[in-house]
Structure formats: C-alpha cells, structure tokens
C-alpha cells in the first residue's frame, strides 16, 4: 500500500527547473522523512501533492487519487502544515484552528484541547501577536487534532524551541502508532533520525537517495575510535579505511560498512583496550550528497544544511 507515489515529476517556473524528475514513494503507515536543503524543491513537491501547483510532467498519485483533479476529495483525508505559517492577523489562534478544522471536514474537540495544553498555546491571542513558533503551533494543533489519515508537514518545527520539538516528536510517534501516514519535510537531521522509518534525500529537484536509515547506513561509513595495547599499524594499507589519525596511543578512523569486519579483525591483533564505534549519522549521509556543493561554497562543515 502506498500513500504517495511520485515518479519523474517535473515542475518549472519560467526558466527555473524547480523539480527535475523527482521520485518519491511513501508507504501507508510510515513516517517518511523528506530531506534536502532550502531550495532543493521540498515545498514545491508538497504543493504539487496538494494540487496547488500543476505538474509539467511525471506521474503523481496521492491516496490512490490525482492530487490536481481530486483535490477536494483528497484534502478531506489529509492535513497540512505549511513551512511558513501565515494567519489572518485579526483572527485568534483558536478561531483559526477551528476554521481550518471545519473547512477540512471536522475536528476532535477533546484532542484539540489536549494539544493546546501540550503545546502550551494560548488560543485567545490574535494571530498578529503570535511569534513564528506560535503560528506554527496553531497549524500543528489544527493538523494533529484532525482524524486525517495522511499528515503532510513542511518543516513543521523550524520555529519551535527544544521543549516543543520534544512534544512534537511525541505527537508524531502517537500518530504513527495509530497507523497514520506522515510525510515530514525537514532539514533538521536529528529530527528525521528520531522519527522517520524511511527517508528520501533530494537535491536540485531530484531524488538522490531513498530508503530506510539502516539501508542508507550501509552505503556509508562508521566512525571508530580505539585504544590499543601496542601502537596499531598497517591500518592505512586496508581498503575502505579513511581519515586515519593517531592520537596519544588512540587511533581514529572512518570505515566503509563492508570493510568494517576486516578493520576490526586487524585491530584486535594489537590488543584492544577500549573501543567506540559510532554509526553514521544522517548528517554524514547528507554531507556526502552535498559535499561537493559545500566545497564549492566554502561553507563550514558544521553548518552543512544552511548552504
């Protein structure tokens, strides 16, 4: 069962090719991370999925329907949180939540009250007095208080503080436990790592990597730090070992997943005193795909996604 199925999606704005043959498969019941830096085409894809933009080429199916032709019927079954939430300045947060809920086709009053409480949101304030984070909470409460089978969330936490980020993650886990589907666009990798069953990484309007985190980790390297009784030598001659450094009797290196076994066998020959191994983070996956771009832009590796 697939909730979202996109293949070869192309969308151009004048001379700009925002989406250039994008593919995306989201299975029913999974939390799918949709990752990419700003301007890579995440929001454009989501707007095509919502029938707000018309695709130039490619095949797009959403909940077994055509998002452009069947927009109204499909929208009853999904809830959307935009990346940049703008509300009506003179209308209170509570009114906006109710309005959006009713326009979608109903809202669970008990869950609404509970979510307002958990997100610590004052529904009586007029939207013009809300900060970015509070506007985002309004949209999140409206979406999460619905019974939608699909949640489409476009960078939903970019304005939330760490406390609220935790509440958000909790809510998404509950949503998944209920068997609902979530498409979560993000450039916060820790969030995607914490929540997503599978991720798709996109770049320049094209999918460059897609799969479960485990599958993706196989494509990358594990970081090893080891302290050995005798100085470990000969590691540099092993295939698949990278960035080898010796520091005060300790050795650090990154190793390709398929070369991990050989490297560890080699290490034990020197008497391992301590060993830490760190699985590759999404950040590293990301960096591999955007590494050349970072090099071009001269951006610091610490701020990979802001390039």
């Amino acid at each position: 069962m697939t909730a979202i199925s996109v293949s070869g999606l192309v969308k151009t704005f004048g001379a700009t090719r925002a989406l250039d043959g994008l593919d995306l498969e989201v299975a029913t019941g999974e939390v799918h991370g949709f990752l990419g830096p700003n301007g890579s085409g995440k929001s454009t894809t989501i707007r095509v999925l919502l029938g707000l933009l018309r695709p130039d080429a490619g095949r797009v199916r959403l909940l077994e329907g055509d998002p452009w032709r069947d927009a109204v019927a499909l929208h009853r079954r999904l809830a959307y949180v935009p990346g940049d939430v703008t509300l009506w300045p003179n209308i209170s947060g509570g009114e906006s939540i109710d309005l959006l809920g009713h326009l979608r086709g109903g809202l669970d009053a008990r869950r609404r009250a509970e979510l307002l409480d958990r997100f610590d949101l004052d529904p009586r304030k007029k939207a013009r007095t809300y900060s970015k984070g509070n506007r985002q909470k309004v949209a999140l409460v409206a979406a999460l208080a619905s019974d939608a089978e699909l949640l489409v969330l476009d960078e939903p936490t970019s304005g939330l503080d760490p406390l609220m980020e935790a509440v958000f993650q909790e809510c998404i886990r509950e949503v998944r436990a209920e068997g609902r589907t979530v498409l979560l666009s993000s450039h916060i990798l820790a969030e995607a790592e914490a929540l997503c069953d599978r991720v798709s990484i996109i770049r320049h309007g094209r999918t460059v990597q897609s799969g479960s985190l485990d599958e993706l980790r196989h494509l990358t390297r594990t970081a090893i730090t080891a302290e050995t009784a005798r100085p470990a030598t000969g590691l540099e001659s092993l295939a698949g070992v990278h960035d080898l450094r010796h520091e005060d009797g300790r050795v650090r290196f990154d190793v390709d997943t398929d070369a991990l076994d050989g490297a560890l066998r080699h290490l034990t020959g020197f008497g391992v005193v301590s060993l830490t191994s760190a699985p590759p983070t999404l950040e590293e996956l990301f960096l591999r795909h955007y590494g050349d771009e970072l090099a071009e832009n001269g951006a610091a590796a610490r701020e990979p996604v802001r390039s």
Binding site: I97, K126, T129
Partner: peptide
Amino acid sequence: QPRPGRATATPWLRSPLALAVRL
C-alpha cells in the same frame, strides 16, 4: 491592552464564505 480574541470560533465561522465575510 489589546482585547483577547475568542478561544474557539463562532459556529458560523466554518465556511469559506464566512471567512471572506469576516475578513
């Protein structure tokens, strides 16, 4: 002090027409 708004929408504010009228 700015008057707080309503915590919940009035029952009539639930259609696109009601929103347009309100705005």
